[in-house]
Simulated assay, not measured.
Amino acid sequence: MTYRTVAVIFPVLVLMTGCSDKAPAEADKAERVAAAAVPGAPPDGAADERAKNAPASNVRETGDLIDFAYAYPREAAQIPELSKLLDADREAKRSALVGAAERDKAASAKGDFPYHAHSHLQKWLRVTNTPRFLSLSAEIETYMGGAHGMTSFETLLWDRNKRRTLKPLDLFTSPEAFDAAIREDFCARIRQAKAAKGIQTPDEPGSPFSTCPPASAQTVWLGSSDGRYLDRMTIAIGPYEIGPFAEGSYKINVPVTAALVRVVKPGFARDFLPVN
Results as ranks from 00 to 15, higher is better:
residue 13 L to F: 14
residue 195 A to P: 03
residue 205 P to L: 09
residue 69 A to L: 02
residue 164 R to C: 14
residue 73 P to F: 01
residue 7 A to H: 14
residue 223 G to L: 01
residue 202 P to N: 09
residue 132 R to L: 04
residue 110 K to D: 05
residue 136 L to Q: 03
residue 182 I to T: 13
residue 7 A to M: 09
residue 231 D to I: 02
residue 83 S to I: 02
residue 239 P to L: 10
residue 144 M to H: 15
residue 244 P to Y: 13
residue 120 H to N: 06
residue 233 M to P: 00
residue 102 E to T: 09
residue 141 E to F: 14
residue 169 L to S: 01
residue 60 R to G: 12
residue 210 S to W: 06
residue 199 I to M: 09
residue 25 A to S: 06
residue 62 T to A: 12
residue 46 A to I: 04
residue 239 P to M: 10
residue 258 A to N: 04
residue 17 T to P: 11
residue 241 E to Q: 12
residue 9 I to F: 12
residue 202 P to C: 10
residue 157 L to D: 15
residue 266 P to V: 01
residue 120 H to E: 05
residue 84 K to G: 08
residue 145 G to V: 12
residue 147 A to P: 11
residue 246 A to Q: 14
residue 274 P to R: 00
residue 78 Q to M: 07
residue 259 A to K: 13
residue 253 N to H: 03
residue 107 A to P: 02
residue 158 W to L: 15
residue 22 K to W: 06
residue 141 E to L: 14
residue 114 P to T: 12
residue 237 I to F: 03
residue 158 W to Y: 15
residue 5 T to R: 11
residue 105 K to V: 14
residue 216 S to N: 01
residue 6 V to L: 08
residue 55 P to H: 06
residue 66 I to Y: 02
residue 266 P to H: 00
residue 17 T to Y: 11
residue 184 E to F: 15
residue 14 V to I: 10
residue 121 L to I: 04
residue 160 R to D: 02
residue 25 A to Q: 07
residue 237 I to G: 00
residue 1 M to D: 08
residue 137 S to T: 07
